[in-house]
């Protein structure tokens, strides 16, 4: 149930941002979530709806973009995806993870107060 912990963090951040920027409403939140993070988008959306009920974020839409895995070989520079393993080019075990671990609030669609 770590989706609820994540949602609490997201909601705290969003409420702070909204207060600081003076937006009238946050219409939509775009998240980027790496496939390795074991976050279930449906549970995340359910948790978001539950936690935001009765707050200024009630009705805000949550959009989750899944980020696939990507590795880069530290020896030969080859990049590859799927679930990891050794470098498909040179067989090296020295690799860095380029993508797949994200847990990011990417962007917001906000309604500004009338000027």
């Amino acid at each position: 149930m770590h989706e609820f912990s994540l949602v609490e963090s997201i909601v705290d951040s969003l409420l702070t941002m909204q207060q600081d920027a003076g937006w009238r409403r946050i219409v939509q939140v775009q998240l980027r979530v790496g496939v390795l993070r074991q976050v279930f988008p449906d549970i995340l959306s359910f948790a978001f709806e539950t936690v935001t009920r009765g707050t200024p974020l009630e009705g805000t839409k949550l959009v989750v973009e899944e980020v696939p895995l990507a590795f880069r070989c530290l020896d030969c520079g080859t990049t590859w995806g799927d679930e990891g393993g050794t470098c498909p080019c040179c067989g090296s075990i020295q690799r860095e993870t380029l993508a797949g671990m994200e847990l990011i609030i990417q962007s917001l669609e906000v309604e500004e107060p009338p000027s």
């Binding site: 998240l31 917001l108 669609e109």
Partner: peptide, 16 residues
């Protein structure tokens, strides 16, 4: 007027 704001902040920024 709606606008898109780029955030790119870790969800766990507080805990981090």
């Amino acid at each position: 007027m709606n606008k898109i704001v780029t955030i790119q902040q870790s969800i766990m920024a507080e805990d981090e």
